[in-house]
């Protein structure tokens, strides 16, 4: 753990979420986000994040802290952390992916998109719509046509669960 004198020397940043909660983090942790890095380079130490809500921001700060301490020896630990991190509901994943996209954290973005893609594999169009809260904008005729054009995708069983 860092001693008191070291803590004083560390540059700190304040992040403010969309619901006005403030979080203090080390600059070295924050700059893993390209968005924050750009602001820091412009001299900002107070970073408002109008698109990132508190619940997502807490998780993302956790992620950044964990990944800032990456060494050769804690590889397994980080893998376990990442696995737990994405083990959540679709709605939470969407909120996180939206935040990661806004903050430009590419490794997190990659992991979240891959997780979402893996989890919608083998789902039916109906299940995918429910998961993403999408209204179908096809007419019944159009839908029949597009299904026919993609008939290969409809061979075999679908997973109709929504998690």
């Amino acid at each position: 753990m860092a001693s008191t004198t070291e803590t004083k020397q560390k540059k700190m940043l304040i992040l403010k979420s969309a619901d006005n909660d403030e979080f203090e983090i080390e600059e070295s942790v924050g700059v893993q986000s390209e968005t924050i890095k750009n602001l820091v380079e412009d001299g900002f130490t107070f970073v408002p994040l109008p698109n990132v809500y508190t619940k997502a921001l807490i998780k993302i700060i956790d992620y950044l802290k964990k990944h800032a301490n990456k060494t050769d020896s804690n590889d397994e630990e980080i893998k376990t952390f990442d696995k737990d991190f994405v083990n959540t509901t679709f709605d939470d994943l969407f909120e996180l992916v939206s935040a990661a996209n806004y903050l430009h954290i590419s490794c997190l973005m990659n992991m979240l998109c891959q997780t979402i893609a893996d989890r919608i594999k083998d789902k039916s169009p109906e299940a995918v719509r429910k998961i993403f809260h999408i209204n179908c904008d096809y007419t019944p005729e159009e839908e029949a046509k597009i299904r026919k054009a993609n008939a290969q995708a409809f061979e075999g069983q679908f997973d109709e669960s929504l998690d």
Partner: peptide, 28 residues
């Protein structure tokens, strides 16, 4: 998701061929 096309593209890019066929049937 549909208001965030850049994110949607990143997700669809990571699907396999079958799921991409299903994705085409979700909406326009």
């Amino acid at each position: 998701i549909n208001d965030n096309q850049d994110v949607l593209i990143e997700i669809l890019k990571r699907l396999d061929g079958r799921s991409l066929g299903v994705a085409a049937c979700v909406c326009r």
